[in-house]
């Protein structure tokens, strides 16, 4: 469809049609569900932004205990030490595993924080003028959608360690309460990103130039 390079483009909304976001089929208004795939139809998801902010808020709230409380509780020869997410990264660096420390730091600290900022920015860009072009913002949205699940790495690490190092050894590792709040925070931000209707990114750019 390279020949369709007409500017400005015609969207389903401007043509008074409703497009299915699951299968791409174009419908005349008035239908509840897509006749091809059965998905719910709406020209624009009106509650999209509300749900984005609600999930994002929930994700932020549980992100705080995830960083304050211990993620791992290690018992070595009767002595118990707690380590938080950040403490775990520092420990790895002390052992000289800089690469792995980098992966954990990136997945557990950088990605969640960057995701919070990126989602808030995208949601604000729908109602406010921003510098980034719609094309770049959609790219940002795709990166956020792709990268979010990788934050789960640390939760998996805790589970693997806890199952491997059992009580009958001199050492025991147990999951801490932060594992739950961190997993929830990742899930909530994923839901927040999924609630965003990317078609909203382009609508503001269709506004006539003043």
């Amino acid at each position: 469809m390279e020949d369709a390079r007409v500017a400005p483009v015609l969207t389903a909304r401007r043509a008074g049609m409703i497009a299915c976001t699951e299968c791409g089929k174009v419908h005349v208004p008035g239908l509840e569900r897509c006749t091809r795939c059965g998905s719910h139809l709406s020209s624009r998801d009106v509650t999209s932004l509300q749900r984005v902010w609600a999930w994002l808020g929930a994700g932020l709230v549980v992100y705080v205990p995830a960083n304050v409380y211990p993620m791992l509780r290690t018992t070595l020869l009767g002595k118990t030490t707690d380590s938080t997410i950040f403490g775990g990264v520092v420990d790895l660096m002390h052992h000289g595993s800089y690469g792995i420390a980098g992966i954990v730091f990136f997945a557990s600290i950088m990605i969640p924080v960057a995701k919070f900022i990126a989602i808030a920015y995208l949601a604000l860009s729908v109602t406010h003028r921003v510098k980034l072009s719609p094309g770049k913002r959609q790219h940002l949205y795709e990166v956020v959608e792709f990268v979010g699940r990788w934050s789960m790495i640390d939760v998996f690490v805790v589970a693997i360690l806890a199952s491997l190092v059992q009580l009958d050894f001199a050492a025991a590792i147990n999951p801490g309460i932060a594992a739950i709040s961190f997993a929830l925070s990742v899930a909530f931000t994923m839901l927040s990103a999924q609630s965003f209707d990317p078609r909203l990114i382009w609508d503001a750019s269709e506004e006539p130039e003043q």
Binding site: M1, A4, A12, A19, T21, G24, V26, V28
Partner: peptide, 21 residues
């Protein structure tokens, strides 16, 4: 609506940005 249901059969919309093709 700019198209009838029959005309819409020959259109496909981008699932991300709503552009008709």
């Amino acid at each position: 609506p700019a198209f009838t249901a029959e005309q819409a059969e020959h259109l496909i919309a981008c699932p991300l940005c709503d552009t008709l093709h």
